[in-house]
Computed example of a mutant assay.
Amino acid sequence: MSFPIDPTAEHKGAALAALRQPIIDWVHKAAEEMFHECPKAESRDRQPYGYNGTREIEIGGLHLILVRSMHSTRSTKYDGFFDIARRADDNLEPAREARIKTALTKKLPKLLTCGGEGDVTVLVLEYSDIALTHHVLIAEALENLIAQGVAMPDQVFIADTTLPRPWDFYQPITDGALTIEMEHIEIEPPEEIGY
């Protein structure tokens, strides 16, 4: 089953909890329907493309998609396995910009206060999901936020931690000036990072 990448954007606390049972009930009903459509994987002669059942619904403003896929050549190891995934819509830019703006809202007040007192301010933005973003897209989102009047620290680094090591660092903002054309710096992270 997949659901929108940010399912809690419109629902919080009790409102979100109230959606759980209707979602569970729908999954049970839709899964049973798809099971009856194809109780077992048929031979390739009978169903050359296997079975791919899909059900979609909107519950409380959440667009949910449930998929059941079977094929005669596929291992039965995961038969009955239920997986939940977040789904990104076609246009990720507003979501990416909103996520970066949220990160900045949490970090910038303290940094900008220090900057106002004469300190050099440094912000590191980390991403670990190459499927949804990369350093240029983050830099472009920063550029859009700057155009909207959002103040930035003196130095901003983007840390690509998609691989265990080494990490790639990019610097879109150097001494207050933004650039999209960035060289990467490889940094070997410590063996263990304490938070």
Rank of each mutant, 00 (worst) to 15 (best):
E93K: 13
H134K: 08
R74A: 14
G116T: 02
R87E: 10
T102F: 06
T174S: 13
V150S: 02
L92N: 10
K107A: 15
D90S: 07
I65C: 12
E188W: 11
G80Q: 09
E97D: 06
L145Y: 02
K106G: 01
G118N: 06
Y127T: 02
I100D: 00
C114W: 14
T113C: 03
L111G: 05
L137G: 08
P109I: 00
Q171E: 07
A131R: 14
T161N: 12
H134L: 02
D119S: 11
T105A: 07
Q171R: 13
I84F: 15
D89Q: 13
E58M: 13
T105E: 05
D129E: 14
A103L: 11
L112G: 01
P166C: 07
T174A: 14
M152E: 04
L111D: 03
P153W: 08
F157Y: 15
E97T: 13
R74Y: 10
L62W: 08
T102D: 08
D175T: 07
Q155S: 03
L125I: 13
L66P: 03
G80H: 09
D79R: 10
H71M: 02
E188K: 12
T161Y: 06
T133P: 00
G61V: 03
V120N: 09
I187T: 05
K110V: 04
T133Y: 01
E181H: 05
A151Q: 15
T121M: 06
A159T: 03
L137H: 14
I146S: 11
I146A: 14
I158F: 10
N144K: 13
K110R: 13
A88E: 08
A139W: 02
P164M: 00
I146W: 10
P153G: 04
H71G: 01
E56H: 11
D129Q: 11
E140D: 08
N144M: 12
L145N: 01
V150Y: 09
S69C: 08
P94W: 10
E186H: 14
P166W: 09
S69V: 05
P166V: 02
T179Y: 11
H63P: 03
I187F: 10
V120R: 15
E126F: 10
Q155C: 01
R74W: 12
T161E: 11
D168T: 05
A147L: 11
T162D: 03
I130T: 11
L108T: 06
M152L: 15
L123V: 01
I84C: 10
L163W: 10
F81L: 15
Q171M: 06
I187L: 12
P189E: 05
E97M: 06
I187A: 12
M182L: 02
T76M: 11
V136L: 09
E188I: 09
E56K: 15
K106R: 08
P172F: 07
Y127Q: 01
R99A: 08
T121D: 07
L108D: 01
K110L: 06
Y78H: 15
K110W: 07
F82I: 13
L142A: 08
A159L: 06
L111W: 08
I57R: 15
I65P: 00
D83K: 13
T105S: 12
Y127M: 05
L132P: 00
F169D: 00
R55D: 04
I146K: 15
P109N: 02
P164S: 03
L62Y: 04
